[in-house]
Structure formats: C-alpha cells, structure tokens
C-alpha cells in the first residue's frame, strides 16, 4: 500500500492504495465519484476521461499513485457549486448530446479540453478531437453540435468556464 495525496475537484484527499490501483478505481471505489465510467479495457473508449492538471487523460490508463500531488477534475467538479452547469454541460443538454449518458462524462471532459486547446473549432476539428471517445447512442451528430456550441459559450462566458 502506498499513500497518495491529491486534489480532487478542489478538495485535498489522501488515500492508501495498491500500486496497481488505477486512477479511475481511486475515484470510483475509494472516493465514491462514480460519474467517471469504465467502458473498455484497452484504453480506447474515453468513458473514463478526467482532467489531470487541466489536461484530459484516460483515468483507466493512469495509476492512482501517478496522480500524487496533482489536481484532478472529474465530471462532478465541472458544474458550479450552486448547480449551474458548465457551458459545455449546458450545451450538451441544449443540443441533446447524450442519450444513455454513459459516455457523457468522458465526452464532456474531453470536449472541455478540446475547446480550451483550440482557438477555433469547426465540425472537422471537433470530430477528430473526439477520436478517443466512443458513443454508441447518439451517432455523434448532436455531440458535435453541442461541442461547437459549448466551445462558443466557453469563449463568451470565460468566468464560468474558468470555474472548472
């Protein structure tokens, strides 16, 4: 067992984990943050995407111990404390970018990173940028619409987007 200390959604936490414990297991099993999902075992589906120090990563492909000292943001940490949705979350709702909701947390976390790391997004960049996130329900059509709108909203509501 190793001790890991990290910040998750702004709160400092310390837990004892095995070397083999994955970050996603730390989040789900030790911290009860079940919004981050697991959809595959080959690091391809993106259901598990969270932000580590502001960058999107697959939490199923990172050891919990590797997150020691880092800041992790999960889907639970995206909306404002009063429940106001992050502009990207709001855009997914507005444009029906989710159906069963299983891919959604990872999809939204990837989309937020995508929006932040691109000055300009168009349909092609969004589709390519979501390469690491598989959705079986939506056919991506509305996800693409949502991400474009969400990115636009993040630009026009920077304060809220920065709350993340």
């Amino acid at each position: 067992m190793t001790s890991v200390s990290l910040k998750v959604n702004g709160k400092s936490v310390t837990r004892e984990v095995e070397g083999r414990t994955l970050l996603v297991q730390l989040l789900r099993d030790h911290l009860g943050l079940t919004g981050t999902h697991v959809g595959c075992d080959t690091s391809q589906c993106g259901a598990c995407v969270v932000h580590v120090d502001g960058e999107s990563i697959k939490s199923c492909t990172m050891l919990a111990v590797q997150a020691n000292g880092l800041e992790v943001t999960t889907i639970e940490g995206l909306a404002a404390a009063d429940g106001t949705l992050h502009p990207m979350q709001a855009a997914f709702r507005e444009h029906h970018g989710l159906q069963c909701g299983y891919c959604t947390p990872g999809m939204v976390m990837s989309a937020v990173d995508l929006a932040k790391s691109h000055e300009h997004l168009d349909e092609k960049t969004v589709r390519e940028g979501l390469e690491g996130n598989i959705c079986r329900c939506t056919g991506y059509h509305n996800i693409v619409k949502a991400v474009l709108a969400g990115a636009e909203a993040m630009r026009s509501q920077p304060a809220q987007a920065a709350a993340e």
Binding site: G46, S56, K58, M62, S110, D113, E131
Partner: peptide, 9 residues
C-alpha cells in the same frame, strides 16, 4: 498518434 488523451500521457 492515438487520440488527444493518449497524446497527453
């Protein structure tokens, strides 16, 4: 290479 998340690690 891979996708954005793979490239970040």
């Amino acid at each position: 290479i891979g996708d954005a998340q793979v490239r970040n690690r």
